[in-house]
Design a protein around this nucleic acid. Structure first.
Lengths: 230, 230
DNA sequence: CTCACTTAGTGTATAAGTTACACTATCTGA
DNA sequence: TCAGATAGTGTAACTTATACACTAAGTGAG
């Protein structure tokens, strides 16, 4: 039976502490599919297996900072939209000992992705969500929760805009929604819906590609990537 | 600049680790108000100040277990509904050093509350949410997030049922919603709504108190306290 | 230069869901 | 038996969501 006292620091010094890590589920839309970024582990345990990018939190490092740093170190990806997902702390989730993982999910537009294996990750690659390889630790659980959160937030937030580049057409935006939701949406209702949020403004530019009418380019109204409804 | 490797355990042993704690925001409806449980701190820092119940996580202890244990040790309260809220990890949130806190919120019906100051808490007391004393650390932020979450979940989940005793009348349930939302609800629409969820069944018992028509008693349909929509 | 092709862009009628609203029912206690 | 108190019930108006088909504006080939 534990006999710990609340914020009695003697416990802090006298007892072994769990390690604290961050893990990141980075989503992006690529090749018309919802994909996420995995790194190939170089070391035991699970050496050679795919896993979420992540790593241990520095003693004076904020959690978000840690997540962004690990992501950059292992994959070279920066400038993503980041949100905390859940903290996974089952005492047996890491075979080497107690590791508590604060999981984040991140979103990035498809045009801002250059990735490279770095740090001690052997390789970095994008995988379609519905076609994941086996992953290390409890990372499948983390990925599933991140996906459920993403789908849920599509309905009541503007989170999907984080997948879009600076300027985009309404058809492109609709395609993103359809990919994440896995269903077709009605074009007119979709446009009515997103314009009713009144967080889009149309630029004076158009996208002309292919032998057809060029599409109006839109951007987010308020400067920066704002989320209006949490 | 950090040079940490992902799950390279050498980091774990070579570097100082943050302490990990759990904090619990326990809500209940009392005296017609939404209240939460605070403990008076016995030790520095913030000795004598009110704070959320909580404490350090044991090295082999699951996070939920830790939260429930701390709650019981410090306040005597058991058997609550518990859900993870958020993990607070700002590097300066505790004056003594790095403490990462996994915050939970908990709900309990008003009839199952016996509280007593225990462990090294000087005192334990319920406070109305809109009339909180100054609280230690970043606990005000934690409380605010817990409250927002609670209000948000009223709309799309059956979480409010966790405030109810085994059997309750629809008027009592409506009162709970009104207290949490801070607004009056239409009686007929409310009853239509909750009955449409079809997770209530009416018992054959009635509550007769006061000089008026007795009310039908309901209970949750499925055994246990189930939440249907996460 | 015009025609075939491709995607962009637009409005309306119906269905579904939400809101507003007032009276009768049933019990207690004087 | 009557006054007082809370329980319990339905409907019409309004708002929101859904289903649905054609015209517009480019490109490129013949």
């Amino acid at each position: 039976m534990y006999k710990l006292h609340y914020l009695n620091m003697s416990y802090c010094y006298d007892h072994p502490r769990p390690a604290v890590a961050t893990d990141i589920v980075l989503f992006s839309i690529r090749e018309g599919r919802l994909m996420l970024l995995l790194v190939k582990r170089a070391h035991e345990p699970f050496a050679g297996a795919w896993a979420l990018p992540g790593g241990f939190v520095g003693i004076d490092e904020n959690l978000e900072t840690s997540a962004l740093r690990e992501l950059e170190e292992e994959t070279g990806v920066t400038g993503v939209y980041l949100e905390q997902l859940h903290t996974f702390g089952e005492s047996d989730r890491d075979p080497r000992g107690r590791v508590i993982s604060v999981a984040y999910y991140a979103l990035t537009p498809s045009d801002r992705l250059y990735i490279h294996a770095a740090s001690d990750a052997k390789a970095v690659a994008w995988f379609a969500l519905e076609d994941l390889p086996p992953v290390a630790f409890d990372h499948e659980k983390v990925v599933n929760m991140a996906h459920r959160r993403l789908v849920a937030k599509l309905d009541y937030s503007t989170i999907a805009f984080q997948f879009m580049p600076e300027m985009f057409t309404l058809s492109e935006l609709q395609a993103v929604y359809q990919i994440i939701l896995g269903e077709e949406l009605d074009k007119r209702n979709f446009r009515k819906g997103v314009l009713a949020m009144s967080c889009l403004e149309h630029t004076n530019e158009r996208r002309r590609n292919g032998n057809h009418r060029p599409a109006q380019l839109y951007r987010l109204k308020s400067p920066g990537r704002v989320e209006f409804i949490k």
